[in-house]
Design a protein around this nucleic acid. Structure first.
Lengths: 157, 157
DNA sequence: GCTGAAAAGTAAGGCCC
DNA sequence: GGGCCTTACTTTTCAGC
């Protein structure tokens, strides 16, 4: 949790691991010009500091049968933090909610939802959005095409 | 590219790798109850088929100094596919665009943008949104809190 | 033909400098 | 922070079902 010093080499390591976490420690060490043990120590430090959260495989949902992506804009009735916590907990509980953002502007929450079919979305919206005393209304946008999807956070060297 | 048969074991493998791609082949093989070589062959097949696209480290942007996330809703003037292709190319070219979705509904594109500060967003919007002959108007929502961020696509076993 | 078993190659991770 | 060595995982080859 405590702030950790991040130097140029660390940033290079983060950038490379964000693009390919399968890279071997030897290749990584070579790319950032330090010895393998040093590189390993740095990577471990970044993990322990919670800067590198986890390593995951990215899957192409289009190759896995039918799936629909939706973007839902949720407008709230009020700003009761207790109700909002409950709402956020519900979002965490539902696997189909890929992303959930609390925002300022013309709406309050923006969700990215991934479902197998509209029946599943119907069930989800009934269970969470219609059911919530906090939700005033919501607007659903259907994703035609996921033009860009990048997990990499831009980091300046 | 060609469609590949995906059975229950493959789906289990995908689910596990989506949660942790650092798992060893031995652990993975054990978890899905096949031998390590068989497991390795299956993982390789999933990669070659483009189902597993890549492996990445997930970083906590909050731990890397200042950063602002924005959600931009872009409304177009028309639906000229040539201009849209140009717009999408621009989105790919800009590192700060984390996600870009083409959608149906009250808007046309939804972007998730990550910048260091508002000056950077200003530059980005001038270079891409204001500059585009295709963009009618856009609405910017500032992310207060990234409530949920999941890369895992839900897969039924 | 696909799966599991054993062996060889290779990288990770600890220890000392 | 870098070099060496042990350990363990990956990965190929081969035999069996």
């Amino acid at each position: 949790m405590s702030d950790v010093e991040i130097d140029k080499i660390d940033r290079k390591i983060i950038n490379l691991l964000q693009q390919n976490s399968q890279i071997t420690n030897l290749e990584l060490a070579d790319a950032v010009a330090v010895s393998p043990p040093t590189c390993l120590r740095r990577v471990r430090r970044l993990r322990e500091a919670g800067i590198i959260v986890k390593d995951v495989s990215i899957v192409d949902p289009g190759k896995l049968g039918t799936h629909i992506e939706l973007i839902v804009s949720v407008e709230l009735k009020g700003d009761d933090r207790v109700l909002m916590d409950a709402f956020e907990k519900t979002m965490h509980a539902h696997d189909c909610v890929m992303q959930c953002y609390l925002v300022t502007g013309i709406t309050d929450y923006v969700l990215v939802v991934c479902v197998k079919n509209m029946a599943e979305f119907e069930r989800f919206s009934r269970a969470t959005l219609y059911a919530s005393p906090l939700v005033k209304r919501f607007i659903t946008l259907t994703v035609i095409n996921r033009v860009k999807y990048q997990t990499r956070v831009p980091i300046e060297i």
